[in-house]
Structure formats: C-alpha cells, structure tokens
C-alpha cells in the first residue's frame, strides 16, 4: 500500500512535468521552453556552477559510486 502511494505520487509528478513541457511548446505560451530554462540556469553566475556540479554528481551517483 505504501509503495503504491509513493509510485502514484511519482507518476503524478512525471505527468506534471510532461504537462508543463507540452504547454511550454504551444505557440504563444507564457511558459519558458526547457531550452530557455536550461539557458537561464547556465547563465546565472552561481547557478551555472551549481548546475554543472549537480549534473556531475547525478552521473557519478547513478553510474559510478
């Protein structure tokens, strides 16, 4: 029961992410497209360092450790 609830929440979050992604690609949408979000993160003076560190940590955590 507990894991079913957890997976249901993960599924909802995944759907929300896909929904935001799709809505952002509709012409005239006020939402930033994923590329622009990434560009905003990659051009922030401190955010860009955090972004590279987070990306590297994610890869190390998932594939190496």
């Amino acid at each position: 029961m507990t894991s079913a609830l957890s997976y249901a929440v993960w599924a909802l979050l995944g759907l929300a992410l896909v929904g935001v992604w799709v809505r952002s690609s509709v012409p005239g949408s006020s939402l930033a497209r994923p590329g622009l979000v990434l560009e905003r993160l990659a051009t922030g003076p401190f955010l860009r360092i955090a972004l590279v560190v987070a990306w590297g940590w994610m890869g190390w955590h998932l594939f190496a450790r």
Binding site: W10, L13, L17, R23, S30, A32, T43, G44
Partner: peptide, 29 residues
C-alpha cells in the same frame, strides 16, 4: 566570464513559475 542571462519582454508573465513549482515538488517528494 560574466554571463548574461536571457532577457524576457515586460509582458512575458511568469515563464519560470510552473517549472520551479514542478521541480520544487519533485525535490520535496
């Protein structure tokens, strides 16, 4: 060395808000 973040027009609204909400919810969960 000095990055320039993308500039959006004054009528851009809140282009990041939905993304921040979704990623915030993912991190919280």
């Amino acid at each position: 060395l000095r990055p320039r973040p993308p500039r959006l027009g004054p009528d851009a609204g809140h282009p990041w808000r939905a993304w921040v909400c979704v990623f915030g919810a993912v991190v919280a969960w």
